[in-house]
């Protein structure tokens, strides 16, 4: 099938005789979709109503001449990319120059010559095809970029992702008070033995999805998962005036949710609040992470507690005891800290 058959053409000429002549020439070239306008105004109306691939435009017409129609087309954001071929007198170099200046793609001199008409239309169709292709490639690149950006915001907290996109790096920062939460599954190793990998991962997926829902509800930030451990923060990228209470509430909800997901799941939650440093490490695989004593203590608390409870240091407990129920677990040897009084929170008051 000739290329021309797919292109829709609008021919604007006030001479009915030219319509017949052009129609015959275009028919012979395989251009089946050809519309005709008798004057400039009609042409502009037709352009508003339907899309054309190429406009053939006579210069000399009553009412609106070819220059005026061309200017209107080029001033219209929706149609300015439609290539326009002017129909001119053969020696009319000044008009041709003016049309090119106004944005015409090409010109056809009268009397029409079939070979030249074929060449001009062919080149125009090809150029439009290339331009459309380029446009669609650009669109594709934009879509891909959007996807990549979205992926980045999924992997990283949105404020961190924006900084990374804008500047290409993320400045590490220190925070005065952030609530940290660690949650791990009791007896996970035992659970794994005797189950297929698919079953284990599907179970973890369901549990962690539920945990993500809970952290989102508390306006917290999931930092990462490490094996069966889920790590989240409060007051890091979203402001939180009581980060410790937030992580305690979140921890209690997680502990309650785990058995609902699967009767086999029981979790231990450890929390702590205090200063820490956050940033991105790695250059090829970005990982937003947190460091500091606060993080270590919260992790230790998770290891020290009982299933179904939220464990914290006694100092932390004093901050939230007015709103929580709990009991002393007594002194515990915490690695790197010596003996510390540890309290487990079992519910809210």
């Amino acid at each position: 099938m000739p290329e021309g058959e797919q292109s829709s053409l609008l021919v604007v000429d006030d001479e009915p005789f030219n319509h017949t002549l052009i129609k015959r020439l275009l028919d012979a070239e395989g251009y089946a979709d050809v519309s005709f306008a008798d004057n400039g105004r009609q042409a502009l109306d037709m352009l508003q109503e339907s899309n054309f691939d190429i406009v053939l435009l006579d210069i000399e017409m009553p009412e609106l001449n070819g220059f005026e129609v061309l200017e209107s087309i080029k001033a219209d954001l929706n149609h300015r990319h439609v290539p326009v071929i002017m129909i001119s007198g053969v020696e009319d170099t000044e008009s041709i120059a003016k049309c090119i200046e106004l944005g015409a793609e090409d010109y056809l001199a009268k009397p029409f010559n079939a070979t030249i008409l074929r060449a001009r239309l062919g080149a125009c169709v090809e150029k439009k095809r290339l331009r459309d292709q380029e446009k669609s490639h650009l669109e594709q690149i934009r879509t891909e970029k959007k996807k990549a950006d979205e992926l980045l915001t999924v992997i990283l907290p949105s404020s961190i992702a924006s900084e990374l996109k804008a500047t290409g790096k993320v400045q590490p920062r220190g925070y005065d008070k952030v609530g940290m939460l660690f949650c791990d599954i009791v007896g996970f190793t035992n659970y794994c033995s005797g189950r297929s990998a698919e079953e284990v991962v599907t179970g973890l997926q369901t549990l962690f999805t539920k945990f993500e829902e809970i952290t989102t509800k508390y306006n917290m930030e999931k930092i990462k998962t490490i094996g069966d451990e889920f790590m989240a923060s409060a007051g890091l990228t979203n402001p939180d005036y009581e980060p410790l209470l937030t992580v305690v509430k979140c921890g209690l909800e997680m502990a309650a949710a785990a058995p609902e997901v699967s009767a086999d799941w029981k979790v231990r939650v450890g929390v702590h609040a205090g200063p820490l440093v956050a940033g991105i490490v790695g250059d090829q695989k970005y990982q937003f992470d947190v460091w500091g004593d606060t993080v270590n203590v919260a992790a230790r608390m998770a290891g020290a507690g009982n299933p179904g409870a939220v464990t914290m240091t006694h100092d932390s407990w004093l901050e939230i005891e007015s709103e929580c129920q709990g009991k002393m677990l007594g002194k515990m040897e915490i690695k790197g800290k010596g003996e510390i009084d540890v309290v487990e929170c079992t519910g809210l008051q």
Partner: peptide, 13 residues
């Protein structure tokens, strides 16, 4: 004459 117009179209550009 067509080439002349083409040349002028280029100079106009």
């Amino acid at each position: 004459s067509i080439e002349k117009s083409d040349l002028i179209a280029f100079l106009t550009s």
